[in-house]
Design a protein around this nucleic acid. Sequence first.
DNA 1: TGCCAGGCCCTCTTTAGGGCCTT
Length: 215
Amino acid sequence: MPASMSRIAVIDFETTGMSPALGDRATEIAIVLLERGEVVDRFQSLMNAGVHIPAFITQLTGISNAMVASAPRAQSVMSEAARFVGDAPMVAHNAAFDRRYWQAELALAGLAAPQAFACTVMLSRRLYPEAPSHKLGALVQRLRLPQTGAAHRAMVDAEMAAALLTQIQHDLRVRHRVAEPDHRFLMRLQACSRAAMPRWLARQAVADALSAEAP
DNA sequence: TGCCAGGCCCTCTTTAGGGCCTT
């Protein structure tokens, strides 16, 4: 398999709130490009969307109104980000959140967002059902993955999500004998959800998805 | 005007409710 086919873009946004549908905007973006489990490139930028950052968000992320005031405009940052990702499939921790902002911010920049998103929350629920918490920081601690700095900055969280994804792929190879746990396999595994089938069938589907790849 | 996410997953469930996870 060519390296480009195993390329995955792990993304994290910092934002002004929970929903772009309510007018919230991105304030920072970070993307870690993985190839065969190795970080091969990084993209990071604060972005000025021209909206006020609530005080509690500044307290949470450390990103202030003054910081984004001197940052490049959201539209140009998103254009660069889209070029950086290209056609690589994407991964995020709680992907529904980052996918909403990826699509909304690209739409505001007049750009399409065709990438498929896999979700490390859903994957860790399938793979580590015994974990007491599936928060990014809790999983990083539990799996003893490296922490590169204080959480709630985009690159720190993107690096942690990339480390988590790499561990998930490692465990799929070693524990479940999945020869090539690429993005297509991750999408199949995360689709084994109760939303699409009864719980017992979902559990069986996870087991089947894992064992089907065994030699 | 005031309010406001949304999808997954569990259980004291499925004709529902609430916790998790992201900022």
